[in-house]
Nucleic acid binder design. Sequence first.
DNA 1: GTAAGCGCTCACCCCAAGGTAAGTGGTTTT
DNA 2: AAAACCACTTACCTTGGGGTGAGCGCTTAC
Lengths: 113, 113
Amino acid sequence: MKRLETDECGFASALNAISGKWKMGILWEVTLQPRRFGELRRLLPGVSEKVLAQQLREMEADDLIRREVFPGAVQKVEYSVTDFGRSLNEAVDALSRWGKEFEKRQERKAMVA
Amino acid sequence: MKRLETDECGFASALNAISGKWKMGILWEVTLQPRRFGELRRLLPGVSEKVLAQQLREMEADDLIRREVFPGAVQKVEYSVTDFGRSLNEAVDALSRWGKEFEKRQERKAMVA
DNA sequence: GTAAGCGCTCACCCCAAGGTAAGTGGTTTT
DNA sequence: AAAACCACTTACCTTGGGGTGAGCGCTTAC
């Protein structure tokens, strides 16, 4: 992903971390519990393997999630949320609540129309 | 702008309102004080007239800003923030603060590398 | 022995957001 | 008379994020 110029704007920086179609979904899933690659595939219907792998890498680089390889005959990789990732979830909370309000308004408009 | 399916996720709804390269910039500027079209052009260096007009329309439809035409010989149109738009600014605040934290981390990483 | 699961990577394609540049219909300045 | 400001609109083009489908190296189940 190309990064925006942030020029001291916190919001633009935050966007750099969360923009990516599946990132917030991934963050949410690994917050509930650690997840494996194939598991995430199934939990996020519509995501392609390419993009899933890509966004997991970026989120790992941004320290939002942790990637752990477990030894053993069959490959096992687990993704879990970091403390920093958790803090993002909290920061997003207010915006989510606002979003619900927005949603209600949109529905009201749709009713009238 | 194409709208995402929100399926009861407040965050996705919020994204529908704020995604648009210049929307948060516009919101910020009209929050400081009412602005005219040409003024916004100058305040947001890089925005094209097409996209500015487009995003202003969408934000008006979403009730984030208000458009007022002033009578007179020369055209005068003013855009100002609505109460609902103000509430979005507040909701974005926590995320902006998180973004600043994120920015610091990125800088630290860049230092080491 | 072959199919299916694991966690990926790679080459290719599509599409919508956004940029470019020109035009519109008016007024005002020089 | 020409140029410049006002608030836009329109046709065209570019860009890059994300989807598709195949392949890889390995292991386990049928």
